[in-house]
Computed example of a mutant assay.
Amino acid sequence: MSYDPYICNLDPETKTSLKVYLFNNVENVDQIRSNIMNGTWKCAAIKPSLILDLFQIAVAANKAVLAEKSQAMITRTVYAEILFNLSLSKNISQSLSKFGVETDRSLLVCFLITADSDESETILEQIKGELLQISDLKQFTNIQEVKSIYKLTNVKSDVSLLNLIITKIVTKSFIAH
């Protein structure tokens, strides 16, 4: 069964789009993680439990491609930069382990697509798991964990929670949260 991904155009200067798929019951998480870490796969695997809304990923990805374009990345790859941008931590290892997939059997797979490059189909064929509708993301989100990671435990509304998370992602380099 085929489901449409979440697709979002990023900053026009980068000529890049973000494409995100949601998987559950993934059997080859170790292989996926290894392929991403050694650079064989050009994608990011994110824990869906920490994502309140896909806009979070879009903002982090946009920051990553802009940093890559201006040669100002903190991490070694644009995909690691996405994970780094999702986190409030300025520690790269903490950011990657917090948001990256380690043993989770559910994951969001993110690709950066340009006119010259779209490796998503080749990689998707190798993921041994159940592809879900992207709209099913809410079932995986752990609101308490999201609030804890972003230090927003007193926020009541999910709408203002998303706004605060996005603000923290965008201002990470300027403010110590």
Rank of each mutant, 00 (worst) to 15 (best):
M1R: 08
Y3H: 14
Y3I: 06
P5Q: 09
C8Q: 12
L10R: 02
D11N: 15
S17W: 04
Y21K: 00
Y21L: 02
F23C: 01
V26P: 02
R33Y: 09
R33D: 08
S34L: 09
I36L: 04
N38V: 09
G39T: 13
T40Y: 06
A44G: 01
A45W: 11
A45V: 14
I46H: 01
K47A: 02
L52M: 14
L54Y: 15
L54A: 11
Q56L: 05
Q56V: 11
Q56I: 13
I57H: 06
A67Q: 13
T77P: 00
Y79M: 00
Y79G: 01
L86Q: 12
L86Y: 06
L88F: 07
L88R: 12
K90A: 04
S93A: 13
Q94W: 08
S95D: 01
F99D: 02
G100A: 02
G100D: 01
S106K: 06
L108Q: 09
F111K: 05
L112V: 11
L112F: 12
T114F: 08
T114I: 11
S117C: 05
E119L: 01
L124V: 09
L124R: 06
K128W: 08
Q133D: 15
Q133L: 11
S135V: 13
K138M: 11
K138S: 10
N142L: 12
I143N: 10
V146N: 01
I149Q: 09
Y150L: 10
T153E: 15
V155M: 10
S157L: 06
D158Q: 13
V159F: 04
L164N: 12
L164W: 06
L164H: 07
L164T: 05
I165Q: 04
K168F: 04
I169V: 11
T171D: 13
